[in-house]
Amino acid sequence: MHRRASEEFVRQVAAVRPDQWDAPTPCADWDVRDLVNHVVGEERWTVPLLAGQTIEDVGDSLDGDLLGDDPASAAAHAARAAQNSVTEPVLTGKTVQLSYGEEQAAEYVCQLAADHLIHGWDLAVAIGAQARLDPQVVDGIAAWFKDREELYRGGGAIGDRVEGSTSAEGALLGAFGRDPGWTPGHAAVAALGAAFGRGDVDGIMAQLTSDCVFESTSPPPDGGRFVGAEAVREQWESLFGGTDEPLFETEEWFVLGDRGVVRWRFSWRDADGQRGHVRGVDVLRLRDGKVAEKLSYVKG
């Protein structure tokens, strides 16, 4: 399982285009380069740990960037070295010293195989490639993970389970907190909501296309229509700059293909010192991992 999953990960790394290294991934805190560096780091750790070294022995020698100017080669070399280090410790029942203590080498290698499998999917969908999850590896990891899922979740290693998939692949991704339908548009919608919550106009505009369209909720009946980043930015600067204690809160959102929907609550401090609010919905159109159209509707 470890060999198959790591070989697929290396294949996906080789497919990353030069302009995709800073693209978002299903791991919200990592772009493509961060994700690949994480997995290469795991592979680089595998060799000394399975050889009997401790975390203290390795120290900070594997901290920082491990990809250099040729990430594909770095990933391939690290994967090959890790694969070559696995067999003997597993077959002879050796143990390995991990952050939480002593562990069986076989258990450690299952953890590595699972991480390669899931992060291989993360990488594929982030760069728009076809995700190829080996069915035998999916079945093997699913059986292994069944009794460990809540341990992982309780430790904060994975997000909430995503239900609804009927395929073995989708069910395993859901168990690891992944939405099998994730696209770069998911990252854009999540980042847009976070930027609105901060009142961060620069952050908002970073998630919009240069030719974006925004339709506001007023004046009735159709609202105002603003086309292009400059015109849209002016609207948000006016709103946040001219409102006392503005606060956007995202209540719910989802993405399906190139469309998204966000339910939100906007509140402010009125002239009497009280907080007023409205609730509304944005209907979004997505393109190339950004929001190209934001049509706003409000209860009223």
Rank of each mutant, 00 (worst) to 15 (best):
Leu67Ile: 08
Asp29Phe: 14
Phe240Met: 10
Ser296Val: 14
Ala175Cys: 12
Gly120Leu: 10
Asp222Glu: 10
Val189His: 01
Thr87Gly: 07
Leu172Val: 07
Val281Phe: 05
Tyr297Ser: 11
Gly185Glu: 02
Leu112Ala: 05
His119Val: 06
Glu107Lys: 13
Asp31Cys: 15
Asp272Gly: 10
Val232Asp: 13
Glu237Lys: 07
Val213Ser: 12
Leu133Asn: 07
Thr166Gly: 14
Ala168Asn: 07
Val10Tyr: 01
Leu50Pro: 00
Phe196Gly: 03
Gln111Met: 14
Val125Arg: 07
Gly228Trp: 06
Asp244Leu: 04
Gly64Leu: 09
Ala106Asn: 11
Ile141Arg: 03
Gly260Ala: 10
Ala168Gly: 05
Gly257Val: 12
Val255Met: 00
Leu208Tyr: 15
Gly260Asp: 03
Ala113Gln: 08
Gly181Asp: 11
Gly181Cys: 09
Phe266His: 04
Val137Ser: 13
Ala175His: 13
Val227Tyr: 14
Gly164Cys: 07
Asp179Met: 11
Tyr297Ala: 15
Ser85His: 04
Ile127Gln: 02
Cys27Thr: 11
Pro71Glu: 11
Ala72Pro: 02
Glu88Tyr: 02
Glu8Pro: 02
Leu49Gln: 11
Gly93Pro: 00
Pro89Ser: 04
Ala82Met: 06
Thr250Val: 10
Ser267Ile: 07
Ala271Asn: 08
Asp19Leu: 03
Gly260Lys: 01
Asp65Pro: 09
Ala5Gln: 09
Arg263Asn: 12
Asn84Met: 00
Glu8Gly: 07
Met1Thr: 01
Ala124Asn: 14
Asp202Met: 13
Glu163Gln: 12
Ala188Lys: 13
Glu7Pro: 04
Pro89His: 01
Ala51Thr: 01
Phe9Ile: 00
Glu107Ile: 14
Pro184Gln: 14
Ala190Met: 08
Arg11Glu: 11
Asp115Ala: 04
Leu172Asp: 00
Ala74Val: 00
Ile127Thr: 05
Val13Asp: 08
Val138Gly: 14
Gly177Gln: 06
Gln104Trp: 03
Phe196Glu: 08
Lys299Met: 06
Gln136Ala: 11
Phe248Lys: 12
Gly154His: 06
His119Cys: 06
